[in-house]
Design a binder for these strands. Structure first.
Length: 821
RNA sequence: GCGGUCUUGGUGAAAUUGGUAGACACGUUAGAUUCAAAAUCUAAUGUCCUAAAAAGACUUACAGGUUCAAGUCCUGUAGACCGUACCA
């Protein structure tokens, strides 16, 4: 038994790949293929097996496409701006830049040791001013185009930190650093991008994407287009629009509810009600929807009233924590009889419940109902609309509202405009200057990038607000002293266009050269987790469309195909993560088993779109395979391939090609295992031995390079062409026969076992009775050898057969009668 | 609350359009090899009935339904997970 020095082999080939630059690409005449994994946030703890799985999935695909003669762009970069670096700065007193660069270097080293075939010359980091300069540039372009505006929006505020907290930094309504400090909500003027301008296109084009259906459904629901009616309610002499999909229930409206986070809530709160409302608002724990839903459905009376435009009834306005501020107008008309949440709210605050729709077969009793009736029926208590079917009433009532100029038909989206302002240091500075005289001024393009100052103090507020050298500047218009914007951009801005920058990552005069983007884009295969279904993937799609309309691009969708990999779980069954403490490090696995073994194991456990469970025992199976492979190739002597091997090989090439194309790597590995066993049993030609290595090389690139060289070839197998198959060599009948014979042999051994155990007899001769047309597939010497007993085979219609117990009657097609004596 | 996903042997899992459930691997057991062990090889291995299944019954979280046929489609129940807009 030879031991394989995996690590030596790995190092050897990783070095050779790097020095020969074989994975670096340029635009050429070949057909391009762009494979991209969602770039990582370089966390301080480095990458674990879960990341390794993600990149292995992409690397296999990139290697496969490369061997199929595509010009493959396969780059890697780092989403290196963001909260964790800043948290580390606060907690560990380390500068975010240093923290980030250390993390990136660690990531690169680890990724290289996984044997990933990236074009490293295209690497990018979003924390590099040469990158975020273009964030600022695009921000200004969007501003010019009218895609950006300012509006008040709530933030989580910690008094002790004197700063805004991310939802993640709020734990049970308390600050992450100050356990006793209740988080407050504060309204701040912030920057928004009009993503809703593209809502329709984002929705419509979902259908043309080759993405998993569930992701497409999630996106559609996230955009959430719905048709309805906007009704104007009179509040203190002003018309407030209210969006509803149920104008048929207008006669049943007994109160209005405004969102607790509504910009104009305070205008509605009367002096008398102020203390009550304030007390209620304090219960809000953070701006996150999750936290909001965890709260009991509650509200408070604002003290104001509105007038129902149809009935002219005076109805109270409440504020409630179940109303979403950014949807519709942030205020709803409540119909307790026909909406369950309104019903519960009305019960809680003793608000009247008025029935305006009855089911077809009986009348509801307002005193007796225990829940809202949300089904269809006929109108009641609705004056001239009584007895109308409610579906028709939606149309009729809307018509009348339009006639009276009290409402209109509208479309609403759940999709909100994108709040890009962040009150943090480690992000792209928003290129805006505030001047007392000239107001809000964009930074001139020639002054970009606005770099983050290096000398800063952490711990109290946003470091940018206290940094004079950053803050103080001159107004670009009147040249008087002015102040810079201290908000930075949401990092989703960075990740919305990075896939474009890879095509031209060193360009210092433009974000990218149009011709390069035209050659490489769109991304043919994007790979990443389903957690990005709604946010990153919508922002990136939006960005593409916005840049298209600004004349930078000439395509509509950034990611033609999308693959969602599953998550890696540790041996304890939980998702692998540092905080769980169940991480497996690639370095350690590599030392023990070799990285090829780990790659093979990771993709063979289960279908890559499902969650994968790591198993220290399970990887042994892959190790055995690698040893078997290595040993076989070192001792193999090429001759001429047998028919059986040729059939199996050609069929396997065909099937594995399909499997890899469909990301069914687990099935491909199974076929490779079966194929190797045939190679071990049967004679094979040099060409076929080479084909096997080619099929395996996307999965195990190092050992296959090594064996490719050992059997007398020049490097690199990574640059070889994918094997083709010859349909005429695939012999399905041969495989069927093999199955039949195996089944028969297993039956015989079973009978032998029983006879030995129970009767204590050991038959000497075996007789098989088979269908006459199947006679040719049973080879007597082979059978005798495999059973280790003399075996005779008869056709059931053979008059001279030896069959004392008439077992030939038992024979069926594919299943012979068996007699032993 | 809204939206999405999952549940198959002792374990990880397969099952392309609804068509032989459990491929492949781990583990376990037995045998071979060995002074012995490890490694390797060979065989068996869903559950139950049975002396024995080559020839019985049952079996894909649970309860129903559609169908000649359901792990797969539909309805409901239970449990687990993901996203929910300042984590990326």
């Amino acid at each position: 038994m030879t031991t394989i020095n995996f690590n030596k082999i790995e190092k050897k080939w990783q070095d050779r790949w790097e020095t020969s630059k074989i994975f670096e690409v340029k635009e050429n005449k070949k057909q391009k293929y762009y494979v991209l994994e969602m770039f990582p946030y370089p966390s301080g703890s480095g990458l674990h097996m879960g990341h390794a799985l993600n990149y292995t999935i992409g690397d296999i695909f990139a290697r496969f496409k490369r061997m199929n003669n595509f010009n493959v762009l396969y780059p890697m970069g780092y989403d290196s701006l963001g909260l964790p670096a800043e948290n580390a700065a606060i907690k560990e007193k380390q500068h975010p830049k240093k923290f980030t660069n250390n993390s990136i270097n660690k990531f690169i080293k680890q990724q290289k040791s996984l044997g990933l075939s990236y074009d490293w010359s295209r690497m990018l980091k979003t924390s590099d001013p040469e990158y975020y300069k273009w964030n600022q540039y695009f921000f200004l372009k969007f501003l010019e185009k009218g895609l950006i505006y300012r509006k008040k929006a709530p933030v989580n505020w910690c008094k002790k930190c004197d700063t805004v907290l991310a939802n993640e930094q709020v734990h049970n309504g308390k600050c992450w650093r100050h356990e006793n400090q209740e988080v407050e909500l504060k309204q701040l003027e912030q920057w928004f991008i009009k993503t809703t301008k593209y809502a329709d296109e984002l929705l419509e084009r979902v259908d043309e994407l080759e993405w998993p259906e569930r992701i497409k459904t999630m996106q559609k629901n996230w955009i959430g287009k719905s048709h309805g009616t906007e009704i104007l309610f009179d509040v203190n002499g002003e018309k407030w629009p209210i969006f509803t999909t149920r104008p048929d229930t207008i006669y049943g409206v007994t109160f209005l509810v405004i969102a607790t986070q509504h910009e104009r809530l305070t205008e509605l709160v009367t002096k008398e009600q102020l203390p009550k409302v304030k007390a209620f608002l304090k219960k809000a724990k953070s701006t996150s929807q999750k936290d909001l839903d965890a709260l009991e459905k509650e509200g408070a009376f604002t003290g104001s009233y509105a007038t129902n435009p149809i009935t002219n009834e005076k109805i109270p306005i409440y504020t409630g924590n179940f109303v979403v501020a950014d949807y519709g107008s942030g205020m709803i008309m409540a119909v307790p009889a026909h909406d369950q949440r309104d019903f519960e709210f009305a019960k809680k605050y003793s608000i009247p419940i008025k029935i305006v729709i009855n089911p077809e077969d009986y009348d509801l009793n307002p005193e007796a109902i225990t829940r809202a009736f949300t089904g269809d029926g006929r109108l009641t208590n609705s004056e001239e609309f009584n007895n109308l079917k409610n579906r028709e009433a939606i149309e009729e009532i809307t018509k009348q509202l339009i006639k009276k100029k009290l409402g209109k038909k509208t479309t609403q989206y759940k999709l909100k405009d994108w709040l890009v302002s962040r009150q943090r240091y480690w992000g792209t500075p928003i290129p805006i200057i505030y001047c007392d005289d000239c107001n809000i001024q964009p930074v001139p393009e020639k002054d970009l990038p606005i770099k983050l100052p290096e000398k800063i103090t952490f711990g109290k507020g946003n470091p940018l607000t206290t940094n004079k050298s950053f803050l103080e500047t001159k107004c670009p218009k009147c040249k008087k002293p002015a102040k810079r914007e201290t908000d930075t951009m949401d990092t989703f801005f960075d990740s919305s266009w990075y896939y474009l920058r890879y095509t031209d990552n060193k360009n210092s005069t433009k974000p990218f050269q149009e011709s390069k983007v035209k050659y490489w884009l769109p991304v043919d295969q994007y790979i990443g987790g389903a957690e990005h279904a709604c946010m990153h993937l919508i922002y990136a799609r939006f960005f593409t469309k916005a840049l298209r309309d600004l004349g930078f691009l000439s395509f509509d969708e950034p990611f033609t195909k999308l693959f969602n990999q599953g998550m890696l779980h540790g041996e304890d069954g939980f998702v692998m993560s540092k905080s769980r403490g169940n991480v497996i490090l690639p370095e350690e696995v590599s030392k023990k088993h070799g990285i090829d073994t780990a790659r093979l194991f990771l993709v063979s456990v289960a279908s890559p779109d499902k969650d994968i469970h790591w198993s220290e025992k399970g990887i042994e199976g892959s190790t055995r395979f690698m040893k078997k492979l290595h040993e076989f190739y070192l001792s193999s002597k090429p001759t001429k391939s047998s028919r059986r091997l040729e059939s199996k090989l050609n069929k396997t090439i065909k099937l594995i090609t399909e499997d890899i194309t469909n990301f069914k790597y687990n099935l491909a590995v199974i076929k490779l295992r079966e194929l190797l066993d045939i190679f071990i049993e049967e004679p094979s030609s040099k060409k076929d031995l080479e084909s096997f290595l080619k099929l395996l090389t996307p999965f195990c690139p190092h050992i296959t390079e090594e064996l490719w060289e050992k059997i007398g070839n020049k490097p690199f197998i990574s640059l070889q062409s994918w094997p083709t198959y010859d349909e005429s060599k695939i012999d399905e009948a041969l495989e069927k026969q093999e199955q039949t014979i195996n089944k028969t042999l297993s039956d015989i051994s079973n009978i032998l076992k029983i006879m030995k155990e129970k009767q204590n007899t050991e038959p000497k001769n075996i007789y098989l009775y088979v269908m006459p047309n199947e006679l040719k597939i049973y080879n007597e010497p082979t059978l005798s050898k495999r059973i280790n007993k003399p075996t005779k085979v008869f056709a059931v219609n053979d008059k001279n057969k030896y069959d004392p117990e008439n077992k030939s009657k038992k024979a069926k097609p594919g299943k012979p009668g068996i007699y032993l004596e």
